[in-house]
Each structure stands twice: as structure tokens, then as C-alpha cells.
């Protein structure tokens, strides 16, 4: 079963790579006719990806959130699934693939390069609060990544407009105003999902260790990420930070989030041995 799981993961990696190339080709050469095949390739990639995750879930006896291998695989799946769902609702979202697919490809690539060993679930992890914590983390991170993707598209489209080269691919994506609002909408949604994630984590900590909050680096940085997103929302409402400034802010916020998720364990060794921080 391990062999089948790894093969399926690699098939998904290949298909996501193909989809990424098609999206990037569309972007660089302004050829929007490749957008549709790029989506189809992504759609065919999520099938083996889903199968690999299901096999993993059955083999491990718990959800894919404990190791880097499982978590990156799940993050990537959520990103592609959410992206495809958005496209299903509105074809305008197809252009998001130029940001989402490369990110998903990198994440699933990191997953397959990590150890596929199955680790037993520690006793303190056997609670439904962890499931709530992880699900809302995935939703929140997915939404904030999408918010940044819209922010990047905003900046790129704005640049093309200033250069007077807004043909082909750039005509197909929503207008600047809509991109700005889509970024804001996803960020607001992601912010609340992150709130629920943090609170579910605090309740889990209370139930497992008898305290809500310990100010360990992971907890502190998750609060910092949350406050950064909170700052965005309040700057937008109070100081009318929209458009270019808001788009740059989403990129900055994502850098903080990425540091919180992936960089922290390199700086603070052995802290908060939780969820997918187990290598």
C-alpha cells in the first residue's frame, strides 16, 4: 500500500507540474487558450492526490496532519480543491491558477521529498478539538493564500495596465476593483477561520494540559499572524488601505504566515511539538 500511495503522490506531482507550466506559459506569453487545459490537468491531478491521501488516512489511522509528508500533502490538496471549486462557481477565478498551482506544486513536492513514515498519534492528539483546529487551519491558510494570490494578480494587472499591455490573458481576469475586493473577501474569511483555529487550539491545550495559552513561540507567532491579518482589516476599514497598498500588505502578511508555519521550527528548535511540526 505504501508503494501505491507514493506512486499516486508522484503522479499528482507530475500533473500539477504540467498544470503549473501551462499556467505560467499563459502568463508569460499572454496566451489564454492554455488556461482551460491547465485547469483540466489540475483536475486530473487531484484524483490521484485524493486517492493517495485516503490510503494514507486508512494506513495511519488518523487524518493527514501529523508529519510534514502528511501536512504538506493535505495543504496542497486543500489549495487545489478550493481553487477548482471557485472555478466551478465562476470561471473568472481560472486565472488564479498562475499563483495557486505553482504553490500547490511546491507544497506537494515538499511532501513527497519528506519521510513517508507513519508516526503513532500521541495521546494528547486523540481529541476532536485537534480535528477542529486542523480543519480551520487548512481553511484559514487556504483563504489567506488565495487573498495573496488575488493581491499578486492585482499588482501584475495594474503594471500591465500602466504599460498599456492589457491584452490576452490579462483581459480574461477580473478588473482591478474586483481583484481588490476578492482579496479582501478571502482575507476576511481567512482571518475568522484563523481565529477559530487559535481558539480551538487554546481549548485543546486547556483540555490536555490544563491551560489555554503558554506563550510558546508557535502560539505567539500564530497570534502575531492573526494580528497582522487583523491589522490589514482595520487599516482597510479605518484608513482606506485599498488597491496597491492592500495588495502589498497581503504579500507581507503571507511572509509572516510562512515564517510562522515553516520557518519557526528552524529558529526555535524543539518548541511546541505539535501537529505537523513533527519532521
Amino acid at each position: 500500500m505504501l508503494k501505491l500511495e507514493v506512486i499516486l503522490f508522484w503522479v499528482a506531482v507530475g500533473l500539477y507540474a504540467g498544470s503549473t507550466l501551462l499556467y505560467l506559459y499563459s502568463l508569460v506569453y499572454g496566451r489564454d487558450k492554455y488556461l482551460r487545459p491547465a485547469t483540466r490537468v489540475a483536475l486530473s491531478g487531484i484524483v490521484p492526490h485524493s486517492a493517495a491521501l485516503i490510503i494514507r488516512w486508512v494506513r495511519a489511522g488518523h487524518g493527514p496532519y501529523l508529519t510534514y509528508y502528511e501536512s504538506f500533502g493535505a495543504f496542497s490538496w486543500f489549495a487545489v480543491a478550493f481553487f477548482l471549486y471557485l472555478q466551478y462557481r465562476n470561471l473568472k477565478f481560472r486565472s488564479l491558477g498562475i499563483v495557486v498551482m505553482p504553490l500547490s506544486f511546491i507544497m506537494i513536492g515538499l511532501a513527497v521529498l519528506s519521510s513517508p513514515d507513519i508516526l503513532p498519534l500521541p495521546a494528547t492528539f486523540a481529541t476532536y478539538w485537534l480535528i477542529v483546529h486542523v480543519i480551520f487551519a487548512m481553511i484559514g491558510y487556504g483563504a489567506t493564500v488565495l487573498a495573496t494570490a488575488f493581491g499578486i494578480l492585482y499588482l501584475l494587472k495594474q503594471r500591465k495596465q500602466q504599460q498599456g499591455q492589457e491584452g490576452g490573458f490579462w483581459q480574461r481576469i477580473p478588473g482591478l476593483g474586483s481583484l481588490d475586493e476578492l482579496s479582501y473577501q478571502n482575507l476576511a474569511f481567512g482571518f475568522i477561520a484563523l481565529t477559530i483555529m487559535i481558539i480551538a487550539g487554546a481549548i485543546w491545550a486547556k483540555r490536555s494540559w490544563g491551560r489555554y495559552w503558554g506563550w510558546d513561540p508557535i502560539e505567539t507567532w500564530s497570534l502575531i499572524s492573526w494580528l497582522v491579518y487583523g491589522s490589514y482589516l482595520h487599516l482597510r476599514i479605518t484608513y482606506r488601505w485599498k488597491g496597491t497598498r492592500a495588495a502589498w500588505f497581503t504579500i507581507f502578511a503571507l511572509v509572516v504566515l510562512v515564517f510562522h508555519l515553516f520557518g519557526l521550527n528552524l529558529v526555535y528548535q524543539g518548541s511546541h511539538a505539535g501537529v505537523w511540526l513533527i519532521k
Binding site: T220, I224, H234, L235, T238, Y239, Y268
Partner: peptide
């Protein structure tokens, strides 16, 4: 609402300083 924005930004900055200082 300005107070909210300023307080949140101040809290973020303080937490970042605290988190950096708490690094062994």
C-alpha cells in the same frame, strides 16, 4: 476605529519584539 488599528499594530509590534527576544 483608529484606536483599534493603532492598538492592534502596537500589540503586533510588541509581540514580535517579545518573540524575537525569547529566542534562546
Amino acid at each position: 476605529k483608529k484606536l483599534a488599528a493603532v492598538t492592534i499594530i502596537a500589540l503586533t509590534a510588541i509581540l514580535i519584539i517579545g518573540a524575537i527576544l525569547s529566542k534562546p
